[in-house]
Simulated scan of single mutants.
Amino acid sequence: MNSSDQQVPFRRTVVSYVQRGERMTVGQQRAWDRHWDELGAEVTALPEGPLDLESWFGRRAPVVLEIGSGMGETTAQLVAAEPDVNYLAVEVYKPGLAQLMLRAEKLEVSHLRLLRGDAVVLLREHLEPGALDEVRIYFPDPWPKKRHHKRRLVQAESIALIASRLRPGGVLHLATDWENYAEQMREVCEAEPQLRNRFADEEGGWAPRPEWRPVTKFENRAHEEGREIRDLIYERV
Rank of each mutant, 00 (worst) to 15 (best):
M1Y: 05
M1G: 13
N2W: 02
S3V: 14
D5W: 12
Q6K: 10
P9S: 04
P9R: 14
T13D: 11
T13H: 06
S16L: 00
Y17Q: 07
R20P: 05
G21H: 11
R23P: 04
T25D: 06
G27Q: 12
A31F: 11
A31H: 04
D33V: 02
E38R: 10
L39Q: 11
E42Y: 03
E42H: 04
V43S: 14
V43E: 11
T44V: 11
A45V: 03
L46T: 12
P47R: 13
W56T: 04
F57D: 12
G58T: 04
R59Y: 10
R59F: 10
I67Y: 01
M71H: 14
G72M: 12
T74M: 15
L78C: 10
V79F: 03
A81G: 10
E82M: 12
P83K: 12
V85R: 13
V85S: 13
N86R: 09
Y87V: 01
Y87N: 02
V92P: 00
K94W: 03
G96V: 03
L97Q: 08
Q99P: 00
L100D: 06
L100G: 01
L102E: 11
E105N: 01
E105D: 10
L107W: 05
E108V: 12
V109H: 11
H111L: 08
L114S: 05
L115Q: 05
L115E: 06
G117P: 03
D118G: 10
E125W: 08
H126C: 12
L127C: 09
A131R: 01
V135Y: 00
I137A: 04
Y138W: 09
W143V: 07
W143L: 02
R147P: 05
R147N: 08
L153K: 03
Q155M: 07
S158N: 15
S158H: 01
S158D: 01
I159P: 05
R165M: 11
R167Y: 00
G170D: 05
H173F: 02
A175W: 00
A175L: 05
E179H: 11
Y181W: 06
Q184L: 04
E190H: 02
E192V: 00
E192Y: 07
Q194N: 12
L195I: 09
R196W: 02
N197A: 07
R198Q: 15
F199Q: 14
E202N: 15
P208M: 14
R213D: 04
P214M: 13
N220S: 10
R221P: 00
A222M: 14
A222D: 06
E225F: 09
G226I: 04
R227A: 07
R227V: 05
R230A: 14
R230H: 13
R230I: 14
L232P: 01
R236I: 01
